[in-house]
Amino acid sequence: MTSAGVGALLRTWRERRGISQLELAGRAGSSSRHISFVENGRSRPSEEMVLRLAEHLGVPVRERNVLLVAAGFAPRYACTPLDAPELGVLREGLERLLSAYEPYPALVVDATYQVVAANRGITMLLGGVAEHLLEPPLNAMRLTLHPEGLAPRIRNLREWRGHLLAQMERQIAPARSEALRALYEEVSAYPVVERGGPGGAGPAEETAYVALPLLIEHEGHVLSFVSTISTFNTPMDVTVAELAVETLLPADPATAKYLRSMAP
Score class of each variant (00 low, 15 high):
residue 201 A to Y: 12
residue 202 G to P: 13
residue 202 G to L: 09
residue 202 G to V: 03
residue 202 G to Y: 06
residue 203 P to L: 10
residue 203 P to I: 03
residue 204 A to W: 07
residue 204 A to N: 07
residue 204 A to M: 05
residue 204 A to C: 06
residue 204 A to F: 07
residue 205 E to Q: 05
residue 205 E to I: 04
residue 205 E to N: 00
residue 205 E to Y: 01
residue 206 E to N: 05
residue 206 E to G: 14
residue 206 E to M: 08
residue 206 E to P: 03
residue 207 T to W: 05
residue 209 Y to S: 04
residue 209 Y to R: 03
residue 209 Y to F: 14
residue 209 Y to L: 03
residue 210 V to Y: 11
residue 210 V to F: 13
residue 210 V to C: 05
residue 210 V to I: 13
residue 210 V to R: 12
residue 211 A to Q: 13
residue 211 A to I: 00
residue 211 A to R: 04
residue 211 A to K: 01
residue 212 L to K: 03
residue 212 L to C: 02
residue 213 P to I: 02
residue 213 P to T: 06
residue 213 P to M: 01
residue 214 L to S: 07
residue 215 L to R: 14
residue 215 L to N: 06
residue 215 L to S: 08
residue 215 L to I: 00
residue 216 I to M: 07
residue 216 I to L: 15
residue 216 I to R: 12
residue 216 I to S: 13
residue 216 I to Y: 15
residue 216 I to H: 13
residue 217 E to F: 13
residue 217 E to K: 09
residue 217 E to N: 09
residue 218 H to K: 12
residue 218 H to P: 02
residue 218 H to E: 15
residue 220 G to F: 08
residue 220 G to Y: 09
residue 221 H to S: 11
residue 221 H to D: 15
residue 221 H to Y: 09
residue 222 V to H: 14
residue 222 V to W: 13
residue 223 L to I: 05
residue 223 L to N: 05
residue 223 L to H: 08
residue 224 S to Y: 03
residue 224 S to E: 01
residue 225 F to V: 01
residue 225 F to E: 04
residue 225 F to P: 07
residue 226 V to L: 01
residue 227 S to E: 13
residue 227 S to F: 02
residue 228 T to A: 05
residue 228 T to P: 01
residue 228 T to Q: 02
residue 228 T to H: 07
residue 228 T to F: 00
residue 228 T to K: 00
residue 228 T to I: 14
residue 229 I to P: 00
residue 230 S to P: 06
residue 231 T to C: 08
residue 231 T to Q: 15
residue 231 T to H: 15
residue 232 F to A: 10
residue 232 F to C: 10
residue 232 F to D: 01
residue 233 N to Q: 13
residue 233 N to P: 11
residue 233 N to A: 14
residue 234 T to C: 09
residue 234 T to R: 12
residue 234 T to N: 15
residue 234 T to K: 09
residue 235 P to S: 06
residue 235 P to R: 12
residue 235 P to Q: 10
residue 236 M to V: 14
residue 236 M to W: 06
residue 236 M to L: 15
residue 236 M to G: 11
residue 236 M to H: 12
residue 238 V to W: 10
residue 238 V to I: 13
residue 238 V to E: 15
residue 238 V to R: 03
residue 239 T to W: 07
residue 239 T to I: 12
residue 239 T to F: 05
residue 239 T to G: 02
residue 240 V to P: 04
residue 241 A to K: 04
residue 241 A to C: 01
residue 242 E to A: 10
residue 242 E to Y: 12
residue 242 E to S: 02
residue 242 E to W: 12
residue 242 E to C: 06
residue 243 L to I: 08
residue 243 L to M: 10
residue 243 L to A: 06
residue 244 A to N: 15
residue 244 A to M: 13
residue 244 A to S: 14
residue 245 V to P: 03
residue 246 E to Y: 02
residue 246 E to V: 03
residue 247 T to N: 01
residue 247 T to Y: 04
residue 248 L to T: 02
residue 248 L to F: 15
residue 248 L to M: 12
residue 249 L to F: 14
residue 249 L to R: 01
residue 250 P to E: 05
residue 250 P to L: 11
residue 252 D to V: 01
residue 252 D to C: 03
residue 253 P to D: 11
residue 254 A to F: 10
residue 255 T to P: 05
residue 255 T to D: 01
residue 255 T to K: 04
residue 255 T to V: 05
residue 255 T to W: 04
